[in-house]
């Protein structure tokens, strides 16, 4: 089951650049939340703050509070612990090239010291089925490298890999932007399926995509959260002039 996320006064920097300013936001559990905004507006940085990936960059700095469920992630837990609860799918598919399809999916568990074969088999099958990839790869699980799949399959493999560690939240940073329309629609169907069980936060440049999959949408501009509201409100009667200008294509 997913958990909600509460963000209070979140600020983030890369070196001297202040990329996120005073973000306050509550993301509800078991639903999909889309984040939109022009390039460089801070939406990717924002999701990277939700699983403490931001700080893997040596020049990065974060201030403020993020609560995932009951856990204050910057005070109560180690980054590795948070990242297992808050899974992430990246813009470009990034399967481990040296690992088989099976090992890619099992990697989150195996690399954290979990080696029970029977359980791993079950988890791999369940995760690949959840990611709608099982039927396409079940015959080559241990024979083929994760990198041998097509781009769309690789991205679903990455989703399966993220699901295998049983996260509560799934962050997706433009998961379909490098994919063709058919693969994109598969990923969107997947988000639709998964959002009952996980809290999904999806960054996207594609506003139709946000409208299709997300209950709530947030609009970022210049490191600030301009507006956060139910998706239908954002796209039909936004409160802020800047949101309206953006979604009607006047800039960005």
């Amino acid at each position: 089951m997913g958990v909600g996320i509460e963000v209070k006064n979140l600020n983030a920097w890369y070196g001297q650049t202040h990329t996120l300013r005073d973000i306050n936001l509550t993301i509800p559990a078991n639903s999909a939340t889309a984040l939109i905004g022009p390039s460089g507006c801070g939406k990717s940085t924002f999701v990277r703050c939700l699983n403490r990936m931001h700080e893997t960059n040596p020049s990065a700095r974060v201030e403020g509070m993020v609560k995932v469920g009951d856990i204050d992630i910057y005070n109560d837990a180690a980054p590795v612990e948070i990242r297992r609860r808050v899974g992430m799918v990246f813009q470009r598919p990034n399967p481990f090239p040296t690992m088989s399809i099976y090992d890619n999916v099992a990697s989150g568990l195996k690399l954290n010291g979990f080696h029970n074969r029977k359980v791993l088999d079950e988890v791999v099958e369940r995760s690949l089925k959840q990611a709608a990839l099982w039927n396409e790869v079940k015959d080559d699980l241990k024979k083929k490298s994760g990198a041998s799949l097509s781009g769309g399959q690789q991205q679903r493999l990455c989703i399966a890999r993220a699901l295998a560690v049983d996260p509560e939240v799934l962050l997706m940073d433009e998961p379909a932007s490098a994919l063709d329309p058919a693969s994109t629609s598969k990923i969107e169907d997947l988000i639709f399926e998964l959002k009952d069980e996980y809290s999904i936060v999806i960054v996207t440049h594609n506003m139709q995509q946000a409208a299709r999959v997300a209950e709530n949408t947030g609009f970022f501009l210049n490191g600030q959260l301009v507006e956060f509201a139910p998706t239908s409100t954002i796209f039909t009667k936004p409160h802020d002039k800047r949101t309206e200008d953006y979604i009607t294509g006047r800039f960005g």
Partner: peptide, 28 residues
């Protein structure tokens, strides 16, 4: 590729384990 390291971090893999099982193995 940095993307592969990020993938490992994103799964909650500790740094030493990422270096051993991902970086070194990919560069082997």
């Amino acid at each position: 590729p940095h993307a592969i390291r990020e993938a490992a971090y994103g799964l909650g893999v500790p740094r030493w384990r990422m270096i051993l099982s991902i970086s070194l193995r990919t560069a082997a």
